[in-house]
Every structure is written in structure tokens, then in C-alpha cells.
Simulated assay, not measured.
Amino acid sequence: MDSNSFKIYSSTAELPETWDRVAVNNAFLQTPYLKVLEDSAPTNMECFYIGIFENTELIGVALAQYLDLNKLESFGERDKCIKKAIRNFVFKNFASHTLFLGNNMITGQNGYAFSKEMNFECISKLLIECSEAIVAYFKKKKITIHIVSFKDFYQECAVELKKNDFSTVYEFNAQPNMIFELHPDWKTNEDYVASFSKKYRDQYKRARKKCEEIEVKELSLEDIQLREKRIYELYHYVAQNAPFNTFFLAENHFSTFKKQLKEELRFCGYFLDGKLVGFHTLLLNGEVLETYFLGYDEHIQKEKMLYLNMLYNMTKYGIENQFKKIIFGRTALEIKSSIGAQPIFMSGFIYHTNKYVNKYIGFIFKNLEPELIWQQRHPFK
């Protein structure tokens, strides 16, 4: 452990040459994606890239994100209730400066990667030390970080972290990550549909019939740039109607993403009478297909069952291109389970830098996080 050190970078231009070799198994930690964050991050976000060294050799990489919630136009408009008003007041006044170790924009264990086997005693110590260094950096700038959160760990990792330096940090479980492990026997979309029980096969046929007038096209960089304003309108509607938000994407995010990731990002547009009424995006991450942001016209979505058809189309792409699994992320848990995704529970860790407030972090978190009630569907025979 004594030979390990870390360095925090604020620009991708400063990153060591071997960065992508260490991050080879995770596209969300490789420089093309980090450049997307650098060039089109949400206006209230600042990113930090952490290099972890053994002597002088880079052996680990990590991502941290600072969010200034004072700059946010809205925390989300879907829920209209007293709890939402209280939650918004608390966040504005006691948690407006938040530091995430990990990626707050996506779901999954995408916060760090190592090129060699590392024990969790070492990992937990490094993550805590990195967070403390960034908190100190902001303190010098007269900015007090209120909340520090370590985001998204699969259960086996969370258990190990809890045995070490995370033992005194409050562990929380948010909505599960919906992951679809694709059956190796499915070679075509027809194989997938044939595996449904009658109820869900009928649902599939009904949804497809509703969407017959919709034309689905993959968009190039030029197509995305031409429709940037409309794309943002569709994204923004969905984002604003989420139960809770800590950021909104920049308007040029999708064109910047396509420019950097090229064929690794698939952008599918949904057109009705020549007008863009929805879109979904997919990131090709090795053998894993990652769903990214989407958007749609509210009225077309209801009439044409657009969201459900998007889920079917993403699954079809995953099967036909022989991906092992699809990461569908959080939210809309029930409808995602109806197409075959399973809930995988993940943990996060969080603390408040004010020791008095931190004593009650568990109580505060439980009362601000709405209880999620949903019914898991089982679509297969």
C-alpha cells in the first residue's frame, strides 16, 4: 500500500498515455468518453480524472464529479407533494455542493478500473483519500463540499468495502439496476419473442402494431447535428419529468458523444410523418450493451407505446449483435422487467462533511428517498 499514490487531473489532455490500457474493459472510463464529459458536461458539473500509481506505473483510473445544485433549474417536476418540497429545500440548503466518486450520469459500477488485482483494503483507502483531496481542493477555493457519495457498487464489492475504510460510511440502496442477461440460445429476435408466455407475446404484438407508422432510422453525426435542438427538446421533456434530477445534459451532448465515440454510439431516431418524435441511444461496451439517454414526444409515446417499442428495439439489437447482456439502468422498473430485465441491487455510500449532520445522515436519507413500490414481471414461459 505504501508504494501506491494518486494524481488528480482536471483535463483529459493531461492524462498519462497508458490511461486507456488500464481502462480497456470499460468504455465509460476511456478517454473518448471522458472527452465527451469535458466538452459537453452538464453546466453544473465539473469532472476530475484520477490516476492511481504503483511507484511510477499507472495501475488504476477513477472518475469523480462535482455538482453545484444551486445552478440547477429543477430537481424534477413529476412528483407534486410536500415531501418533494422538503427534499428540494434540504438539497438546496444543506447539500448543494456534492462530490461523487463515480459517474452520476449512468447506472453501474463505472467509477474505477485497475490493470491488476487489488484488495479492497487498498481500494477503500484510495477512494476515501481521493475524496478528501478533492474536498480540500474546493476548500481552498472557498467552496464547502456538503455531501460526498461513492456511487454504485455491486453487492459483493459493497460488502468488502464495508469491512475496510467504508465501515463508518452510511450505506444506501437506491433503485436497482435493471440488467437483461441475454439467453445464449437466442440467435434472432424471433427466438426471443417465441420464448414469451402468451400474455407477453400478445403485448409484444400489440405494441408493434401500434408503432407501425413509426419509421426507425439510425442517425449519423450530421443527422444529429441537424436535429440538435429537437433532440434536446425530447430529452429534456423526459429528464424534467423524472422523479429527481441532479443535472441536465448540455444541448450539444449527443453530437459531441457521436463525434468522439463514432460507431461505438448508436443513435436511433423515431419519425412520424417525417418529424422526429423520439430517440434512444446505445453504447457498445465490449460484450455489454449499455442503454444511454433517450427522449420522446409525450403524446406520441402514449398513443404509439413508443417507450416499450424502444425497449424491444434495444433488445433486438443486443440479440442480433450477440451481446451478453444489456444494462437498462434505473427507473421504469416494471416495464423493463416485462421485456425480460432483472433487478440487480447496488449500494452506494454517502457522508456529510458536517459531523453533526452526518450523525443523522441515515435518517435524513431514508426520509427524503421515496419508497419504491413496483411489481416485477416474469414474461417468459
Results as ranks from 00 to 15, higher is better:
V22S: 02
K355G: 12
E38A: 11
V36L: 03
G60A: 07
F166P: 00
K116P: 04
L126I: 15
Y296Q: 06
I344V: 09
N285Y: 11
F53E: 04
N119E: 13
A23G: 04
Y356H: 11
L265C: 12
K80T: 02
D223E: 04
G329S: 14
L289R: 08
L221M: 11
K259N: 08
S3I: 15
S220Q: 05
K304V: 03
Y292L: 15
A27W: 07
L249M: 07
K210V: 04
F6V: 07
E264N: 12
L308G: 04
N164T: 09
L283A: 15
Q175R: 09
M314E: 15
Y312S: 07
A136H: 02
K92R: 14
Y270W: 12
Y9H: 13
S11M: 14
E190Y: 05
F180L: 14
L306A: 08
N164R: 12
E263R: 06
W19T: 03
H146Y: 10
F48H: 11
V169I: 15
L67V: 10
Y154K: 08
R206F: 02
K116Y: 09
E46N: 12
L127Y: 13
A23K: 03
M310G: 03
E213L: 10
T246H: 08
K210M: 04
F48V: 09
A207C: 12
L333R: 11
S115L: 10
I86D: 06
Q203P: 00
A62Q: 05
A158V: 00
A194Q: 00
V193F: 05
E303S: 00
P379N: 06
R230H: 10
L289Q: 12
V159N: 06
E132W: 02
E117F: 11
M118Y: 03
N367T: 07
T331S: 15
P16M: 01
D185M: 09
F247K: 01
A239W: 01
K142S: 15
G269P: 04
K84V: 01
I339Y: 05
F248S: 01
I350K: 00
V193I: 11
E303R: 00
P176Q: 08
F271Q: 09
L368K: 13
D223W: 01
G318M: 06
E129C: 11
H146E: 08
F247G: 00
E251I: 07
I143P: 06
I128F: 08
K262N: 15
K325A: 13
S96D: 03
Q30S: 10
A158C: 02
S124W: 05
G340N: 12
G329L: 13
